[in-house]
Simulated scan of single mutants.
Amino acid sequence: MYYELATLTLPFGTAAQAATAVEAFTAAPDAGGELLGCWFTDIGTLNQMIVLRGFAELSLLSAERERTQKSDNPFGCGTVALSLEQHSYKGFPWMKPVRPSSQSGIAGPVYEIRTYGIKPGGVQPTIDLWEEYVPAREKLSPCVTAMVAIDGPLRFTNIWAYPTLDARSKVRADAVAQGIWPPKGGPAWLTPQMSSTIAMPTAVSPLK
Rank of each mutant, 00 (worst) to 15 (best):
D166V: 13
G121F: 05
T145F: 15
E34I: 04
P153F: 08
A146F: 11
Y111L: 02
A203I: 11
K139R: 13
P74M: 04
T9D: 14
T7W: 04
R114I: 15
W181R: 09
R172S: 13
S102Q: 04
R67G: 07
G108N: 01
F12N: 12
W39C: 00
P109R: 06
V22H: 08
T9I: 11
F25S: 00
A203K: 13
A56I: 10
V144Y: 01
G91F: 12
A149I: 01
T26V: 11
V98R: 05
V134R: 07
P109A: 07
G37A: 05
L10T: 08
F75S: 03
I180V: 12
L84T: 09
F92I: 02
P187L: 03
A56N: 11
R99W: 07
A203C: 03
N73A: 02
K170N: 12
V22K: 00
A149F: 01
Y111Q: 03
P120W: 06
F156I: 09
P100W: 02
R53G: 02
G44H: 01
P142S: 08
N47V: 07
Q103D: 14
V110P: 09
G44S: 04
I113G: 02
Y111M: 05
A21T: 09
I127E: 04
A81F: 03
I150R: 00
I43R: 13
V144T: 05
V134E: 13
A15E: 15
N73D: 14
T20D: 13
G152V: 06
P163D: 15
L10D: 03
P182V: 01
V171Q: 08
V148S: 13
P183N: 08
G105W: 06
L165E: 14
K96Q: 15
G76P: 07
A173I: 14
K96V: 11
E112I: 02
V51I: 15
L190A: 03
S71H: 08
A175D: 12
V204G: 00
L165T: 12
A21M: 06
P135T: 00
A188V: 15
I159W: 10
I50A: 03
V171D: 09
S59F: 13
P182Y: 06
R168F: 02
W94F: 13
G32S: 09
G32V: 04
G13C: 00
A167Y: 14
I180D: 04
L8K: 06
G108W: 01
P142Q: 06
F75N: 00
A167M: 13
D42F: 12
G179Y: 07
R53N: 07
R53Y: 11
G44V: 08
L5S: 08
A203S: 13
T126R: 03
W130I: 04
A56M: 05
M95V: 04
D42A: 15
A6I: 11
P135I: 05
E23V: 05
D72A: 12
Q69I: 12
A81S: 11
W94N: 01
G117W: 00
S104E: 05
E66P: 12
K96S: 13
V80A: 06
A56P: 10
V80N: 09
P74D: 05
I106R: 06
G78H: 01
I198L: 14
T126V: 11
N47H: 14
L58D: 10
C77P: 09
T202H: 08
T145Q: 07
I50T: 01
L5H: 06
R155M: 10
D128S: 09
A136R: 01
A146S: 12
F12W: 12
G186W: 15
E57C: 02
V144C: 05
P29A: 10
M49L: 15
L5K: 00
K70W: 11
